[in-house]
Design a protein around this nucleic acid. Structure first.
Lengths: 336, 336
DNA sequence: CTGTTAGCGCTTTCAG
DNA sequence: CTGAAAGCGCTAACAG
């Protein structure tokens, strides 16, 4: 990796390019009023010197720091890793950097959110999954900078989300066609009760309605923690209590895997004795032959980043929301 | 939550407290040369106005931004969550904020590390587990600010680490006393090969030496991914291939759990037919009755933060390293 | 002990 | 189109 002296400043560039600092600044900020020749000369010097503007100075001077804060839960790594990667790619294409602030509890959250703290010293904020604004009086984060919510719905902020109700509905309608009882693995409540996660509630509501259309209902709901082991513990109980044939809806692919594996262990034929429907369509779901509700995770991330970038470019107006429709992907786990 | 106007500035405070901005700055930075009465008057105003200094301005002015960047892997949530919490608590007690930069691949890493970018615009950097300096020519991060490595050993930077070799040795010596073959669940290599993780290598070396002292050796080593499911897949193979009695060393508690559970499923008596030794001593290991090598995770985090804070206070001198000794905690899984 | 002032690196007028 | 200059919020001399 090339090492660059961190001490190069805008006036070094100006001097080397034989222009004023104002002009360098204009080039840096893509101001149109710069002669093409001057611009390219300055750019050449910037390149040669490996100059990078100091984000703090930019911010202090009333410009942008080209920095966004992302506040995200520290669970279920895979989903968030995908989302993060997508957001960071979109942001960095516009030369924005991002820093993460993990949602690890109320005390830490309050620290982040107290005005003027680091998390707010960015040009924009992306909240992932949780609409933290609801924790504040007035229902708004105490910040002037644009805020976007991803993987969650809000009517006060721009947001990009998947219609989890519809996803549940699709799963419910599919499940209603299959013989036998229907069992569900869904998420237990957040022990801290701090964050309100509507996502899983929506999936369950959709599922219930999808079943109801066909006059069916859930036989039992196994609540579990959102990790493989949680799913496995639920699966073990399920196999003790369920008869075949039956259908299982797992509110996340992660929870469906142990069900498939337990079925194999118990000698139940997946797709006949037991049908399994997941939610997410993680990259590995296809190889597992798991029928599931597809969520466009990367698209979600790109969209959220895009919404924020537009605000950072000065767009004003009411909150926009981009809704994605999930799709049922049928595979071996329901097709025998 | 109380909402505070983000626009309060140091001169607002100075005016309200009827002092000069210099004095306010002195109070802010705990400069001794301030009359106690003046100090308390200023502090009262700061409190009343809810004033928080702007970290960018502080940084720009040549002072500290009271900000540290933490670069950490996005896996095995529990260990890192504990470590993070400990570090953040120690840092925030000294009024330092921290932002996370996830290690998600080479491209992103290079972006973080290119000089003058956000990750470096902090007063200090904490690297977790991976010594990123080895990726650079010269073996040093291209930054002037102090760097600390936690959960890893380095001779160029201050570091706080647990002697993983010793941990392995203790496990090996214990295992050598038990009858039957010895099986191991350890970590498969990082697919990207980007980061060199010595931790698990050290544990394995120690284990081998501990066994060798008693003239014993490992019968088979099951490589697996560092999550419950990885452990479970290894455990299933292990139970097909192993005879009883036997002993299993899992290089992380996370991997030991599925072994215990599979034993129960297979009707093997834990502590007699199969003995299990983990590594970490996670908070739940005690309830599981898991014999394991205790790592003082919180202490590790506090120490790393402390090492950094001392550097931030101006301490100079050669790299210091704080080594913690792990301890074997014997529980039901080896005691029958 | 304290007020005043000169920058920190950058953006943004404001004249040319 | 471009240079000079003011100022963002703060720290760190510098005088008193």
């Amino acid at each position: 990796m090339r090492v660059i002296l961190p001490s190069t400043t805008i006036s070094d560039v100006a001097r080397a390019a034989q222009v004023g600092v104002g002009t360098v600044s204009r080039v840096l900020n893509n101001h149109p009023a710069v002669h093409p020749d001057t611009r390219s000369r300055v750019l050449a010097v910037i390149e040669a010197l490996g100059y990078q503007p100091n984000p703090h100075a930019r911010r202090i001077a009333g410009g942008r720091s080209y920095t966004v804060s992302i506040m995200l839960p520290m669970v279920e790594a895979e989903f968030y890793t995908r989302l993060l990667t997508a957001m960071e790619e979109t942001l960095s294409a516009q030369r924005y950097d991002s820093a993460l602030f993990p949602l690890l509890g109320r005390a830490r959250l309050e620290r982040y959110l107290s005005s003027n703290r680091l998390a707010y010293q960015a040009d924009g904020v992306i909240m992932v999954t949780y609409d933290l604004a609801s924790l504040f009086e007035g229902g708004r984060l105490p910040t002037e900078c644009p805020v976007v919510l991803v993987d969650g719905y809000s009517d006060r902020y721009d947001c990009a989300y998947v219609d989890n109700y519809l996803g549940g509905l699709l799963a419910g309608r599919a499940a209603a066609k299959y013989p036998g009882e229907l069992y569900v693995l869904s998420l237990e409540d957040d022990p801290e009760g701090l964050f309100v996660n509507r996502i899983f509630q929506d999936r369950m509501r959709g599922l219930g309605d999808g079943l109801a259309e066909a006059g069916k209902r859930i036989t039992a709901n196994y609540l579990c923690a959102l990790h493989y082991r949680g799913g496995q513990q639920a699966a073990e109980r399920l196999f003790r209590e369920a008869g075949r044939p039956c259908t299982v809806f797992a509110a996340a692919d992660l929870l469906a895997v142990p069900v498939l594996e337990e079925a194999e262990r118990q000698g139940w034929r997946v797709g006949r004795d037991i049908r399994v429907i997941g939610f997410d369509d993680q990259p590995w779901a296809s190889a597992q032959g798991l029928t599931t509700v597809h969520q466009p995770v990367e698209l979600l991330g790109q969209t959220a980043a895009q919404l924020l970038l537009e605000r950072l470019d000065g767009l004003v107006g009411p909150a926009r929301s981009v809704r994605f429709e999930p799709e049922l992907v049928e595979r071996r786990s329901t097709l025998g």
